[in-house]
């Protein structure tokens, strides 16, 4: 099946269209020029392009296109934090389809919005905004961003850097911190209730209990919806530090990470661009670099990694998009010399 990759960049949105082989690609765009697209998806329910858009002068926004190619866009009419408060919306980070027609939107400063009209208007999630632990949250290097929003069955998950991960079982009314056994090595208390620096959290769509996270302080897996976590780095990973994470939608024991040297030296480990794969729930990890440059000091941001039933895809800050079919295992450069890549997603067609 052909695939479309919405590629969010610091300078607009590109659409990469690949054939079944994942070796032949066409690059469309840019659209949304002038905007930094922190994350973009094709909503599988409607085919609409949805984009988290930010501009250093004109602030945080959200755009939607229903024409299939991103030629015409509608900007959200209502998005912001309550008037009179101390907090302002600094950025929009992640858009996620929810139940029925709803959309969720994560942003900075550690905020979540819900829309029932396709993103025209957004309602602030007060349960997270007024969370009793908020005074213990702090911004990471990218701001206090709510970058991960996952909807699985009746559970909602969010992850915020650096506040940790939270779960809601009541549609977002209340949120429970789920950071047990997750380290915050940069804090005086190494295992606090909140304050962990989650870099990316994903829930497996077919196994409701299975969560993965790439954290500032290691790679983790949970088998009980985040009630407890097991640290998985070592066992073949060159570093526990990194940002992106991808899963295999057909196998909850498979995960992919792209480690970086360290928090102090944020480039791919060992001067090589390498994807590391586990097929046993994180007990062991193997380097998967066939076709990738073996001398590279690249960086892949937290939204820059995606997978679908057939392939795995990532984009670098140096503007390359790499794609591989899982069955063949060889990486091909789908595009190069794009602006710095902020996000990659995959959609059928």
């Amino acid at each position: 099946m052909a695939v479309t990759l919405p590629i969010g960049t610091r300078k607009g949105l590109f659409l990469l269209r690949g054939d079944e082989s994942r070796r032949r690609w066409e690059v469309d765009g840019p659209v949304l020029t002038g905007w930094s697209v922190y994350h973009a998806i094709v909503d599988p329910r409607s085919g609409a392009l949805c984009a988290c858009t930010n501009n250093w002068v004109y602030g945080a926004s959200f755009h939607r296109s229903d024409d299939g190619g991103g030629e015409t866009w509608e900007r959200t009419e209502q998005l912001g934090l309550p008037e009179g408060g101390d907090l302002k919306l600094n950025a929009t980070w992640h858009v996620e389809p929810g139940r029925d027609s709803e959309l969720w939107l994560g942003g900075d400063p550690g905020v979540l919005f819900r829309s029932e009209d396709g993103g025209k208007t957004w309602e602030l999630n007060r349960g997270l905004f007024d969370h009793p632990t908020r005074d213990r949250w702090q911004p990471g290097a990218g701001g206090m961003c709510c970058h991960s929003v996952q909807v699985v069955d009746s559970s909602l998950y969010v992850a915020i850097s650096a506040a940790g991960a939270f779960r809601s079982e009541d549609g977002g009314e209340t949120w429970t911190p789920i950071n047990s056994n997750v380290a915050a090595d940069f804090m005086p208390e190494k295992y606090p209730e909140v304050g962990q620096c989650v870099h990316k959290l994903l829930a497996h769509s077919e196994d409701a209990g299975r969560l993965w996270q790439q954290n500032h302080c290691g790679v983790y897996r949970s088998d009980n919806r985040g009630d407890s976590w097991e640290r998985l780095d070592g066992n073949g990973l060159p570093s526990g530090f990194g940002f992106p994470l991808a899963l295999d939608p057909s196998d909850p024991d498979v995960a992919f990470v792209i480690p970086e040297e360290s928090a102090e030296n944020r480039v791919t480990s060992h001067g090589r661009l390498g994807v590391y794969r586990t097929a046993d729930g994180g007990s062991t990890w193997q380097l998967w670099s066939n076709g990738l440059p073996d001398r590279a000091w690249a960086a892949v941001l937290r939204e820059g990694f995606a997978s679908d039933a057939e392939g795995v895809y990532f984009g670098t800050q140096s503007g390359s998009v790499w794609a591989a079919r899982r069955a063949e295992g060889e990486w091909f450069e789908a595009a190069r010399d794009l602006p710095p890549i902020l996000s990659v997603e995959a959609a059928a067609g």
Binding site: N55, V57, G59, S61, Q78, G80, E83, G84, K88, L89
Partner: peptide
């Protein structure tokens, strides 16, 4: 206008 003003009604700092 929403791109020019923040949610508090203040003109954005860099406009």
């Amino acid at each position: 206008a929403p791109l020019l003003f923040d949610e508090g009604g203040e003109l954005r700092r860099l406009v």
